[in-house]
Nucleic acid binder design. Structure first.
Lengths: 127, 127
DNA sequence: GCACATGGTCTAAAAAGCAGACCATGGGAT
DNA sequence: ATCCCATGGTCTGCTTTTTAGACCATGTGC
């Protein structure tokens, strides 16, 4: 399954699918983008405004990866100025479900985390 | 966002709990560590062997963050040579459930992702 | 004629991550 | 006695990643 056409790009068999998937969605921006796209289609700049503190380059790069892995589709309308729309694919939408569990957990336990942080800090200052 | 240098941390008001939690668990190593710790307590070097390609520095740093946020406990036994054990807290264990959903999804859809990648690459080569 | 908006890419600088050296110390092999 | 290893980290450069900001082509409103 390794493709030799580009010569440089050698893809290894990933023995651990979890690791492979985590490498993609476990970065700084992927989950945020997917979450932003959950309510519906968004354009590039709208996505950037939605997320707030992502650089153009990283947004562009991460979107490309998500498209590559089949989470989203990129549609270019050849108008002027150009319009580009990003939409979740069925695969992307199917990912929303486990992600929502994660988000629900985050919401439910955020207080506990903040408390743990405070406890930790207090313990540090005590010494 | 929070900047973290060893020993001194500046915590901003996080208006979005999801964002706050994602910043912690959404890095290269946290999920992997939590997964490795799921079966039971592990020592530092055992953890390093388990994960395989993490540097001591990042493992140490990430463990410190996880401890800080209450996901794990660090127990130092003052023997020689020193022994340090890392264990999931109840909070950490409660996180395992949504994480398992994620892992299950990854397992189930890994094939689709690989296929999407192949399709994307074929499309690129066509031009 | 001028600035603006679009969706990016390019570049230089800053930040994060890496491998490997180093630490103190006790135990086992030589 | 001496050498060497194992422990859990931290420190030091070097490499990779991310960032901010300039730049691009072009059609529209002023």
């Amino acid at each position: 399954m390794t493709t030799m056409s580009d010569g440089e790009e050698i893809v290894f068999e990933q023995p651990c699918p979890i690791r492979d998937v985590l490498d993609r969605i476990g970065d700084q921006w992927s989950l945020l983008i997917l979450e932003a796209l959950a309510p519906g289609t968004l354009r590039f700049n709208a996505l950037m405004r939605e997320i707030g503190d992502v650089s153009k380059q990283m947004l562009s790069r991460t979107l490309k990866q998500l498209e590559q892995d089949g989470f989203i589709t990129r549609t270019l309308y050849p108008e002027v100025p150009p319009r580009v729309e990003y939409t979740l694919t069925p695969l992307g939408r199917s990912f929303l479900e486990p992600m929502r569990q994660l988000v629900a957990w985050a919401d439910a336990h955020h207080g506990a985390i903040v408390a743990a942080r405070a406890r930790y800090q207090a313990r540090q200052e005590q010494t």
